[in-house]
């Protein structure tokens, strides 16, 4: 029964191959707003399911180290795949799947449910923002694939700024919460695991660099389009600022 619940949870808290269905489901939702809400809610539901299948119940089978390796491998797989994604929606989903894959790693170490929820939100909030903005790009430009019409900073400065901030938050850049979640996860295990985790940080930085390259640089060659509203950027800014303040406040207990 515990195995069945765990497998069910891999569909909600993305872990390969369950993550494939998760991504398929998110992509099938009609609007950016719906996709954003889904990536906030589904992982939390998955964690609820996991509450009934604690890792200790699987421990006798000696799965713990293999489970941790699988989680890290799943995160690495999605980080590598994010390198070649130029569509903001796809990029955001792949990055989210990579980050949330690590929840399973932390879960196997016996972390508290509260820590896991914070971990899921650390990636969920910026991914929700990025998916919402991807939806806004689709509405205005007919697609969210970058690099076709040059940099968007000139024509959509607010949306671009928000997307850059969300991208940085999603790639565990300090002082965003994912950075501190990553630190907490790493200090809770022996340093040997860092050999698998650290390439992730490199790949995320690489993926962000490639996305920003297409998003920011070069003259815009498309038609004139409207930017997102001031209220929208203010709401996004407030959301990210609150998450930063909370993560900085919580960082005091990291020693």
């Amino acid at each position: 029964m515990d195995i069945v619940l765990t497998l069910l949870a891999t569909l909600l808290v993305p872990l390969f191959p369950g993550s494939w269905a998760f991504n398929r489901l998110i992509a099938s939702l009609p609007t950016g707003l719906a996709q954003g809400l889904a990536v906030l809610v589904l992982p939390q539901l998955g964690l609820e399911v996991l509450r009934f299948a604690p890792p200790a119940s699987l421990e006798p089978a000696g799965w713990r180290p293999w489970g941790m390796v699988w989680a890290a491998a799943s995160a690495l797989l999605y980080a590598v795949r994010a390198l070649s994604a130029r569509d903001v929606g796809i990029w955001s989903r792949l990055m989210l799947s990579s980050g949330l894959g690590l929840i399973w790693f932390v879960w196997w170490t016996g972390a508290s449910m509260q820590a896991l929820r914070i971990f899921a939100l650390s990636w969920g909030v910026p991914a929700a923002v990025a998916l919402f903005l991807a939806g806004a790009l689709v509405d205005r430009l007919g697609g969210a694939r970058l690099g076709l019409q040059g940099g968007l900073l000139e024509v959509m400065p607010r949306a671009t700024t928000a997307l850059v901030l969300a991208g940085l938050a999603l790639t565990a850049t300090p002082v965003f919460p994912a950075f501190f979640s990553l630190w907490r996860g790493l200090v809770s295990v022996t340093p040997a695991w860092a050999v698998i985790w650290l390439p992730l940080i490199f790949l995320w930085g690489w993926a962000a660099g490639r996305l920003f390259q297409d998003l920011l640089f070069g003259d815009y060659r498309g038609e004139k389009v409207a930017d997102i509203g001031v209220a929208t950027i203010a709401a996004i800014g407030l959301l990210l600022a609150v998450s930063v303040v909370l993560s900085l406040g919580a960082s005091g207990g990291l020693s």
Partner: peptide
């Protein structure tokens, strides 16, 4: 941001710095 070359070389710097962050993490 109008010059793609500026972005390309900024990216080189960013990726090298990110590579150098890893040993400090470790």
């Amino acid at each position: 941001h109008r010059r793609p070359a500026a972005g390309r070389y900024a990216f080189w710097t960013q990726i090298t710095y990110r590579f150098g962050d890893l040993p400090l993490w470790f």
